[in-house]
């Protein structure tokens, strides 16, 4: 046992040294790149955006929904309020995330908000290829992840992201490709817990809106299932003064969000 312990210690030390050696080969660390991405694209304090979400099974359009999303940062906590505006089967459904695992769903047919379980985060977000936790990537919120720089070439950095907490581990690993010319994460690839490539998130038509750059279209492709979700982002607004009263049950249960 003692021998094994010594061996393990040696291996760990070697691993640490190897990691340090690897890091020193690059001008920037993985975390530096991730921070730069966030600085360039996701450093806003609040955001309002309308999303048109289309899901395709093969080439068949299966659903086409519209949702208004408000989000803001309060210290380390991200809060969001989401309301479906069409079609009829989901119209009025709302989701409020107050942070600290306090989430509510509003269902118009009951006229009340219900708490939802943290385990819902691992499930599909309204039948799309995004899980609830994947939705954070849309806002470049990678605060739950640590990054390691795997490689770089003249055009891009290749990062491996891993969750800081095992509780939030829904993937074996997440790979992010960041373009060097504009620090834009051109592609994010998700490997499932079996280690198989499951999904690819690609952003298109990056546009400048005031101080921030933001894509006009995102496509999440499930390569295992020949299924994809396309999100068209309309008129994003940043750093609006979104009052805390918006991120409450009162706001959630209203037919339309006013901000």
């Amino acid at each position: 046992m003692r021998k094994f312990g010594t061996l393990l210690g040696t291996l760990l030390l070697a691993a640490v040294l190897a990691a340090a050696g690897t890091a020193s080969c690059f001008a920037m660390s993985g975390q530096d790149v991730l921070d730069r991405v966030k600085e360039e694209y996701g450093d806003f304090q609040s955001q309002v955006v309308t999303m048109q979400i289309k899901t395709y099974d093969g080439e068949t359009l299966v659903s086409d929904r519209e949702v208004v999303v408000l989000s803001r940062k309060v210290g380390d906590v991200n809060q969001s309020l989401l309301k479906f505006t069409s079609p009829r089967d989901v119209e009025g459904v709302g989701l409020l995330d107050q942070g600290d695992d306090i989430m509510y769903m509003y269902l118009p047919e009951f006229g009340k908000a219900r708490r939802i379980a943290g385990s819902a985060k691992s499930g599909s977000f309204m039948g799309t290829d995004f899980t609830y936790s994947d939705m954070s990537f849309i806002s470049y919120d990678t605060s739950d992840y640590e990054a390691q720089l795997l490689s770089e070439n003249d055009e891009a950095y290749e990062l491996e992201l891993s969750t800081k907490s095992d509780k939030d581990k829904f993937y074996e690993k997440v790979m992010m490709t960041v373009a060097k010319n504009n620090w834009f994460p051109t592609q994010i690839v998700f490997y499932n817990l079996d280690g198989r490539l499951e999904k690819e998130l690609t952003a298109y038509d990056v546009t400048k809106y005031g101080d921030y750059k933001y894509p006009q279209r995102l496509v999440m492709k499930n390569v295992l299932a020949d299924h994809r979700t396309e999100i068209i982002l309309e008129k994003p607004e940043f750093d609006r003064n979104l009052d805390e009263s918006l991120f409450t049950i009162r706001s959630l249960q209203r037919t339309r969000i006013r901000y």
């Binding site: 047919e109 009951f110 009340k112 219900r114 009263s245 209203r254």
Partner: peptide, 25 residues
Amino acid sequence: DLYSIGGRAVDVRLGKQYVDVGVGD
């Protein structure tokens, strides 16, 4: 629906509606 009655944090819904104050499913 009438929101912020009298400028206060009070909302009113008048008419036929679904009402459920329970937390059961």
